[in-house]
Design a protein around this nucleic acid. Structure first.
Lengths: 335, 335
DNA sequence: GCGCATAGTCGAAGCGCGTCGATGGGAGTG
DNA sequence: CACTCCCATCGACGCGCTTCGACTATGCGC
């Protein structure tokens, strides 16, 4: 492997000139720049990342910390991961993908060994155990998911409360008065993922204001239990004229369940949900829904993080709750 | 950030003794080892990855190179990615997750800057443009997917031909004589993913030996076109008594399509496919299928790679075609 | 014509760690 | 008691790059 010393020798310049030619931090004449580039091409030189990291304390790598929990719906997570790695790359960063079960430990390990310049946390819970670590490490971090306290962090999430209100209003306007709500799995509440209750509480509050009765059920995660459960719920609540689904696994399973029951949407039942367009395409979901915008959230997190890396002393942290938008796919009708 | 020099000073030993205490490459007395560990704990010391990489030319990072193509079914890819990162971690490696569109360029960039000790290639095509690069870089690589020539590579894949034979034999034994085959999307063939024709050709060959007529169709990728296409095919071939599905998107969409048509499985139609157990659970697929074993393939690739990293001069490369196993879920019956 | 800024380059000092060769001291051997 | 040998430790160098200070040559204003 060629080193920059080889390049310097071949180009007949000093080592530091090579460095400046590459970084542009000091002027280098066009003539010697050309010689250096020629030498680089000739030797197939490419700077050693470790040496660069050591000398400059910059790795140009971001850490992406995700937890794939058994009762979460993994295809939904992927919707965040890919836009994040893409956004990182187009900002000049590579992505270290960390899925360790012990998130706090992993974060501490990666950060204190200086493997990354910054971190993105996915799946952030209300009292996320990674946040105390994040406060103490040298690297800045951005996250998707709303923790209890956002002081000193850059936080991005969908406005789940407003999403719930949008959907409930939509149904109220159509005259629905009896509604079934499928919420995330119980474990999601137990683990303290705030999006679960932010959506549910707002939905209940807004529904009661409209005089709507809501029958709320935490959905299952595993098949075939999930399908059975959905059937049981529909049996239990024949009076419901609409379904609000805030559960990825449930909404993915819903078309088959409704087909099997001979329930037509929206003629027999109105259905609304909360999922991304891509997710809906993957599972051929035909329902009116609030767009969950995983790509936008992931990209914003990375962009803010990178901005902070470029001027580190920036104070003033970002708390961005994406304003939800409803996409009408015609799965609701007036009653 | 504390450095090993700080540790050495606090423990009252030399820098090299600290290093040997950590690596264990030379004996260190229990007594001084204790002092060093105490100092490490006190300072919260953790070795700098960049410096370590520079000094030892080892990063303890593996590169994972994946391409998420628009007409591939992303949830299926995730089935490989997660086991790979887990296997890597439990072997002491972190994972750099690279999804750049220009795969060869990314591989060259990451490898020649020495960011990783080894690479895992996913999605390997028959004439994969990353392979010439892989031959020329310093790092060893393992791959999932069968290229034209496997010389000098560690290659892992399912035995798709044998999988096809298993499924065809299974149907033949039950007396089926008219069979519809849904193959991967045309683009998958065009991009040269050999698994597509390895399966199809073996299926056709084996079927003709059994005197079975096969109606073969490349499946669509996007909804709602896919559902329409499946319906059209089923309309076109009412004489078919069985369906062989080698297409993730199609098999995921199939339950809804069959339900909508009122087709009962296996009473009206036998169905077999090729997918992993996890994938089947995600989409509640009730079909008899060959297990595609993404976890096993991913893990084997990592383990072989790590073994090679530990003793670099090992010649003799691995070509492992996983022997397919059929899981009978009762979706076929005799005719 | 002198001083002074600026462009362009160089040398050297790190960055934090791994590792080689060398050293000192104690145990073991005859 | 002299000698070897091995255990434990140390100092120094090198990994490949960035960056700072210094130096020269050139251009400019007055």
């Amino acid at each position: 492997m060629a080193t920059s010393a080889d390049v310097a020798r071949l180009a007949g310049v000093s080592l530091s000139t090579v460095s400046y030619a590459l970084s542009g931090k000091r002027p280098v004449s066009q003539e010697t720049r050309d010689r250096i580039e020629k030498a680089i091409a000739e030797l197939g030189f490419s700077p050693n990342a470790g040496a660069r990291a050591l000398a400059s304390s910059q790795t140009h790598v971001l850490g992406l910390f995700v937890q794939f929990l058994p009762d979460e719906f993994s295809p939904a997570m992927l919707q965040y991961v890919l836009p994040i790695t893409e956004a990182a790359r187009s900002a000049g960063y590579d992505t270290l993908f960390v899925t360790e079960a012990d998130g706090p430990h992993a974060l501490q390990r990666i950060a204190s060994s200086n493997m990354v310049d910054g971190v993105v946390l996915l799946n952030v819970a209300h009292d996320d155990p990674r946040l105390p670590i994040l406060r103490n490490i040298r690297q800045p971090g951005a996250m998707v998911g709303l923790p209890r306290t956002t002081d000193g962090f850059d936080v991005f999430d969908l406005d789940f409360a407003e999403s719930a209100r949008l959907l409930v209003d939509h149904l109220a306007q159509l005259g629905h008065r009896e509604v079934v709500l499928i919420t995330p799995n119980e474990h999601v509440y137990e683990r303290g993922y705030a999006y679960a209750w932010r959506f549910r509480d707002a939905a209940l509050e807004r529904a009661s204001r409209h005089g709507i009765r809501v029958f709320s059920y935490p959905g299952q995660t595993q098949q075939p239990g999930l399908n059975e459960q959905l059937n049981r719920i529909l049996d239990e609540r024949p009076e419901a004229t609409a379904l609000v689904v805030h559960n990825d696994a449930a909404i993915a399973a819903l078309p088959a369940v409704l087909h099997a029951r001979g329930v037509r949407v929206p003629d027999d039942l109105s259905v609304v949900g909360l999922y991304s367009e891509d997710f809906g395409r993957l599972f051929s979901l035909p329902y009116t829904a609030v767009e969950s915008s995983p790509d936008k959230l992931g990209r914003s997190a990375v962009q803010t993080l990178v901005k902070r890396l470029n001027k580190p002393e920036t104070e003033g942290h970002v708390l961005e709750l994406v304003v939800p938008e409803i996409t009408d796919r015609g799965s609701t009708r007036a009653v």
